[in-house]
């Protein structure tokens, strides 16, 4: 494996919240290393609080690791890299006072994209996610699924090489999730973006990913990486195949034990944490 193929390199990264001795001192991530190839879709999956989102935020420069380094394009990450990395968050992160298209354009303005291109790029991105007819709507007028489509359009319009998605469908119902997952697979197979995708859903991970990194319970680190060898875009029928169930079962086996451990930690720590 040569360095040229690696888009994101995570080396011995740990992250702690609070200082040793504080009441809320927690090691979210413990000595984790990971290479993410250019153009691949990597899913991070693991129990709640295992540091998946923390890792994503550190890759995106929103959070600094307590120790270790993150490199993007072989340069160390020291803060947000809006020209290289775009985010889609779990919560609705659209600006409620802007219409859908204004939201997309605002992102490009923050990024510093040329003014002349903004309108055009925004329209293209919104068309790609199927929101052509809702550009003038305000987020409050859209369903949860459509809001996440708009958030995806905002991220796509930034035309970055890397896309970081933090449980983008986490707050949606099962059916909306399924459809969005299928559309996303089609959409992303036509680009050559490097994507890191955090999810709780085993099915979603198998359906979308080239590789799935399974995290252990807190203090989190990568327990195992599974490859999903299936061409993109994935067909809806993939879900019903034997291969899909086997991969899903493998993940279930890896995860189950960790989730039990995580739940035990939560129960011991009391209901508020």
């Amino acid at each position: 494996m040569t360095t040229g193929d690696v888009a994101i390199r995570v080396k011995d990264v740990s992250h702690q919240f609070g200082e040793p001795g504080d009441a809320f001192h927690v090691t979210a991530l413990q000595k984790t290393s990971l290479d993410i190839q250019r153009g691949e879709l990597l899913c991070l999956i693991g129990p709640s609080g295992c540091g998946k989102s923390t890792l994503l935020n550190m890759i995106g420069g929103l959070l600094a690791p307590t120790s270790g380094t993150v490199e993007v394009g072989s340069k160390p990450v020291r803060g947000p890299l809006p020209r290289d990395i775009a985010f889609v968050f779990q919560e609705n992160a659209l600006f409620p006072w802007c219409s859908v298209i204004e939201n997309v354009k605002l992102g490009m303005m923050f990024q510093g994209a040329p003014k002349a291109e903004q309108e055009d790029r925004a329209r293209k991105a919104l068309e790609a996610v199927g929101l052509k007819d809702f550009m003038a709507h305000y987020p409050a007028q859209l369903s949860g699924g459509m809001r996440q489509r708009a958030a995806l359009a905002r991220a796509l319009s930034l035309e970055t090489e890397i896309l970081l998605m933090d449980e983008p469908f986490g707050a949606l119902d099962e059916q909306t999730r399924m459809i969005l997952g299928e559309d996303l697979s089609v959409l992303l197979s036509s680009t050559d973006k490097t994507i890191v995708f955090v999810t709780h859903s085993l099915g979603e991970a198998v359906f979308l990913a080239d590789r799935v990194a399974v995290f252990s319970a807190r203090p989190g680190s990568i327990k195992e990486i599974i490859s999903i060898d299936e061409p993109h875009p994935r067909k809806p029928g993939f879900v019903t195949t034997e291969k899909f169930s086997q991969l899903r079962n493998t993940l279930y086996g890896l995860l189950h034990e960790e989730i039990r451990k995580a739940v035990a930690q939560t129960v011991m720590a009391g209901p508020l944490t």
Binding site: R83, A86, A93, F95, W97, F110
Partner: peptide
């Protein structure tokens, strides 16, 4: 909502832009 500030920061908003386009509206 903190996520709105995080989102703007991730897209490269400057301090002034954060105030003008996020906090102020």
């Amino acid at each position: 909502k903190p996520i709105l500030m995080t989102a703007a920061r991730s897209m490269g908003a400057s301090r002034w832009q954060l105030f003008r386009w996020v906090i102020f509206p």
